[in-house]
Design a protein around this nucleic acid. Structure first.
Lengths: 332, 332
DNA sequence: TTGTACGCGTTATCAG
DNA sequence: CTGATAACGCGTACAA
């Protein structure tokens, strides 16, 4: 792991020439270049990116901050981002925050010190995010994913969560459902969950019904039977359940079936996100499909664009309603 | 984003003192320290880790290389690793390889140039991995996850895949199954899949049966009904299916149910990995449970240990068989 | 085309 | 406790 000087000496050239052989090969005569390469093979030389980064003031690293990797939505998005980044010659520094604002700030600070060239983040709540406030003063290229495009200072890539949940609820209403409940994870942690609940409320209200209070689970990814049962009793007899994400929906279906309910015959369940697995199971999951890969791709392309000095604007991506087997017409 | 010298001047101290205020605060008088901090606030100074990395020859970055993030096994493992790393003051550089040996080598080379302090990797096939061969000559701390501890040069954290699948198959045999098929993704891509198939074969042979050829799917994460059906016809009437991973198992159950088969009444299905979702669905998935978080934790602790100069050895972690509702006694 | 020389922002090593 | 100075490894004017 020696340095360029050693290589240069062995190759019988100056250090500058050796350096050029790596960073600007076309500016070095072929014979000279080969000598340099041979020499670096011999001594096991490998360019030191840290030194290069210091010198060029550019790390070619993108910082990626996500709430969690337990939700396939985020992990597939990360996978897509990584591919775009690598194709563009960038590496990824990754951190998760578990929807914790303090961790968000700590992660951010660390990435800024690392001098990442850009940032792609999904914060828990863009409205009251200390780390976004901090970022406003930084000249760093930043792209938000999923967060509502509230902060006009930031480029955002997202779907319209409010509208999506409005339509999803509408689908259930169209099927004749009147007793529709909505479940979510800890909702004050997530601005998207709030938007989705608002979408649900508006759909209910527009249809002349009063929205039910949100059924809030302790985890973002697992439904709790005990919190579900009261809504299925004789008093509050839900015929449909709409969920803030697919993992919640799938585990809710599991809970219901385990309690002897048949889905969708006795109760319809609708998810949100459109994770791949939902399509394969039986009954297949009805869901709002977010273009997960595209979200990651567009977000990464946007930061890279910003870094390259291009003019980039926020993007609203299209969602679709996937008609699965987990919902059916309401009957009495 | 100014530098230490600016801060020092403003604070009326030397650059060395300003530096110490950050890296060794206890060696600076409190009054001086405060002046430095005040000055750095004023000019918006933030320590430059790149410069520090160059000087100290240590990046406090761990490179993590995984086949894919689409399998929750890997993404949850990554999440666990990230937490341990952050707690230890390390950051993560993450890349995926999609089981492609060339991408493995490219990713590796990039991480070496980035001067990561250590590496945690899962390669497609440890036996014939160009990047592992390359690594043997490097003095870098490396920990392999999941790969069989074949290469004695490397610390490995894994479960015994062969033994696990042997026992899982045994469980089906104990339930009276005789026609047990195994499905997997592209098997030549993964040394684990091969080991698991061997475990299956040995269990079958020991029980006096001849193992069936592997049913190989095009994707690691999705079963294909068309490839499954021939094994359910009158000639090859399987009563149990054992799968190389849980996503394959869950999608296989979906395929079967969609074809009108009842699980487990008509056919038992067993998975491998023990992803969280499997437990929530109905029928719940019988599976070999790998300690996903522990795998990540132990792996990360091991590299950090190696970096710290501790003596670390390979670890075999325990797996368990989860008895789910997807398997039942064979009947005729 | 190749070589010389400087600086990127920090920490380590001394000396005071 | 504080200050001066030399690296760390590389890129890149500028000169030859």
């Amino acid at each position: 792991m020696t340095d360029l000087l050693t290589v240069a000496r062995l190759a019988g050239v100056s250090r500058a020439t050796a350096a050029r052989a790596f960073s600007e090969p076309e500016k070095v005569r072929e014979a000279t270049r080969d000598k340099v390469y041979a020499a670096s093979e011999a001594v096991g030389f490998r360019p030191n990116y840290v030194a290069r980064q210091l010198r060029t003031q550019s790390t070619r690293i993108i910082g990626v901050m996500l709430p969690t990797l337990c939700n396939p939505l985020f992990s597939e998005q990360l996978q897509a981002m990584e591919q775009v980044a690598r194709a563009g010659g960038y590496s990824l520094m990754v951190a998760t925050t578990d929807y914790d604002a303090e961790r968000e700030s700590a992660v951010m600070e660390n990435m800024l010190r690392q001098r990442v060239d850009g940032l792609v983040l999904t914060v828990a709540d863009a409205q009251q995010s200390a780390c976004l406030a901090l970022l406003e003063r930084e000249p760093l290229p930043v792209v938000l994913v999923h967060n509502p495009a509230a902060a006009p200072h930031f480029i955002t890539v997202s779907v319209d969560n409010h509208q999506a949940m409005y339509q999803a609820t509408g689908r259930l209403l169209d099927l004749g459902h009147r007793h529709i409940g909505m479940i979510a994870g800890p909702v004050q942690q997530s601005d998207r969950a709030r938007l989705r609940y608002q979408g649900y409320c508006q759909a209910m209200t527009n249809a002349g019904m009063s929205p039910l209070p949100l059924i809030e689970m302790a985890h973002h990814t697992r439904a709790d039977t005990r919190l579900l049962l009261p809504w299925l009793g004789p008093e509050q007899k839900l015929t449909a359940l709409i969920c803030s994400n697919d993992l919640l929906a799938l585990s809710a279906i599991g809970c219901l079936q385990r309690q002897g309910y048949r889905v969708p015959e006795q109760i319809s369940v609708m998810g949100f996100d459109g994770i791949a697995l939902g399509e394969m199971l039986c009954p297949s999951l009805s869901s709002v499909v977010q273009p997960q890969q595209e979200l990651g791709q567009v977000a990464m392309e946007s930061v890279l664009g910003l870094i390259a000095g291009a003019v980039i604007s926020s993007r609203r991506l299209d969602f679709t309603l996937r008609q699965g087997e987990s919902i059916a017409r309401a009957r009495f």
